[in-house]
């Protein structure tokens, strides 16, 4: 296991596998950060239920753009240009979750509750990362992601507590995003995931992170009176 700390100036001296993995993970992270606003800005900014909600949609997008900026700067400093993802159509995103559009408030709420939580998990993978410059970015980004998760959880709970049609819409959104969330962790048997851990770029394998996520969200969903979807139904990556 590799556990030295690597500074940006030493990146080129690293093993080619380390360089490839770091380039890849930073590109995907940047794509995921900008992929969120591309999902919801167009439809949710004009149609969120209240003016306050509209402003919160704008603030959330601003924070995600800033996360993209920070990751893009880090990648750029080691010679990796991730700017192409700014103009990508959603269908080309690295992660399947970001390839559609969010068109309902229930989807926006559940997206914050479940998908931004996966975002937090992905960022927490970098805690103790052997590529030292990543760590200094984490506290602020994770804090803002937690804000998105809290907002999403609060709105999901509120919508579910209204019962009837509102609760049904939440269940439908949750059925969709829960499976996407689990898939975001990648394949359990991924060899690449093991190499990320070997090089100290990530802390946990895909399977370990997904397991922890499921353990965290299950009681939260149940407390809302919503059914936890079958975790194996409709999955792309097991």
């Amino acid at each position: 296991m590799f556990n030295d700390k690597v500074e940006a100036k030493d990146f080129e001296k690293m093993d080619p596998e380390y360089q490839d993995l770091l380039r890849r993970i930073l590109t995907i992270q940047a794509d995921c950060e900008i992929g969120g606003p591309h999902l919801y800005v167009e439809k949710m900014l004009p149609s969120a239920p209240t003016k306050l909600d509209q402003l919160i949609v704008a603030r959330t997008a601003a924070e995600e753009i800033d996360h993209y900026r920070k990751i893009a700067r880090l990648a750029g400093d080691i010679g990796v240009d991730v700017s192409f993802v700014l103009s990508w159509p959603n269908q080309k995103r690295y992660v399947e979750t970001f390839r559609g559009k969010i068109t309902t408030w229930e989807d926006f709420a559940v997206f914050g509750f479940l998908i931004d939580r996966v975002g937090r998990y992905q960022l927490e993978e970098f805690i103790g990362c052997t590529f030292a410059p990543v760590e200094s970015l984490l506290p602020d980004i994770i804090k803002e992601e937690e804000g998105h998760i809290d907002f999403g959880a609060t709105k999901t709970r509120e919508l579910a507590s209204k019962g009837d049609e509102s609760k049904e819409k939440v269940q439908k959104a949750l059925d969709y995003w829960y499976i996407k969330a689990l898939d975001m962790f990648g394949r359990s048997e991924s060899k690449r995931s093991e190499r990320y851990c070997y090089w100290g770029i990530k802390r946990r394998t895909n399977a370990q992170a997904r397991e922890a996520y499921m353990k965290e969200v299950k009681p939260l969903i149940e407390q809302m009176g919503i059914q936890v979807p079958d975790p194996n139904k409709g999955r792309l990556y097991l």
């Binding site: 893009a72 750029g76 400093d77 010679g79 240009d81 700017s83």
Partner: peptide, 9 residues
């Protein structure tokens, strides 16, 4: 650095 890193930032 990658081209335009600073300007884009």
């Amino acid at each position: 650095p990658a081209p335009n890193t600073l300007e884009l930032d």
